[in-house]
Design a protein around this nucleic acid. Structure first.
Lengths: 111, 111
DNA sequence: CCTCGATAGTATACAATGTATTCTTCGAAA
DNA sequence: TTTCGAAGAATACATTGTATACTATCGAGG
């Protein structure tokens, strides 16, 4: 059964995919994460998480609709896309955080 | 060694403690969470998380500075307080989320 | 007194998530 | 054809999330 819970890293990965536009390559997602979250992200961690998000129905992917362009490596690249359910999950956790942050700006704003 | 990682639930618990003012009772934290995050929180889950936050140095607590007031139960109540490190951790994850949300309002705002 | 129920917290156990390291492949450069 | 780099998969284990069951103490009834 799909848990309704969404972890912190899963959340960030989903957001990073959205940031890339309609579709995103794992590598770009990784760059986005490292830049926004200021922490290293190993490829393994990222792919594991993407797989779990797929299992929950929060992302889908398809192979680069390749033409005869030679893929840049042994495996063809995958293009990820966030599903409606994924967006829904993001809305829910954002809503909760916004409520919890309310009134704490003085404490939480980085000066 | 203290992991620098802070989970989603830990984050919400910290915020809920702050919402109660200087000091918070576990029971009130629980109510705050259930109301803001729209999900049930068992006592076990909450105390477990508070203990872990304490181990990381993100919260401290002390017993109700009791006078002869009879505690309302078998155990005296604990008053929790978020430490400076805890606030710092919250700032970091908030900062990351704000960056990742940037530009996605159209998608994420609940209409 | 002694039992019962409610309350605050603890202990235990297990599921889900987070993360790094180690393979596999396959094209391209040497 | 050998080596190297890239994209991804597999494996393994640490950390978090969460529920259920257990303790201990106070007050009310009897």
């Amino acid at each position: 059964m799909a848990a309704s819970y969404i972890g912190e890293f899963e959340q960030m990965v989903l957001l990073a995919v959205l940031q890339q536009g309609e579709e995103a390559y794992a590598i770009d997602v990784r760059k986005e994460l490292e830049s926004s979250a200021q922490r290293p992200v190993s490829r393994g961690a990222l792919y594991r998480t993407l797989d779990r998000l797929e299992a929950k129905g929060y992302v889908t992917w398809q192979l680069e609709d390749g033409s005869p362009i030679p893929e840049r490596g042994g495996h063809p690249m995958r293009k990820f896309r966030v599903t409606g359910a994924g967006v829904e999950a993001l809305r829910a956790s954002r809503s909760a955080l916004l409520k919890l942050w309310r009134g704490l700006d003085a404490v939480l704003d980085e000066s």
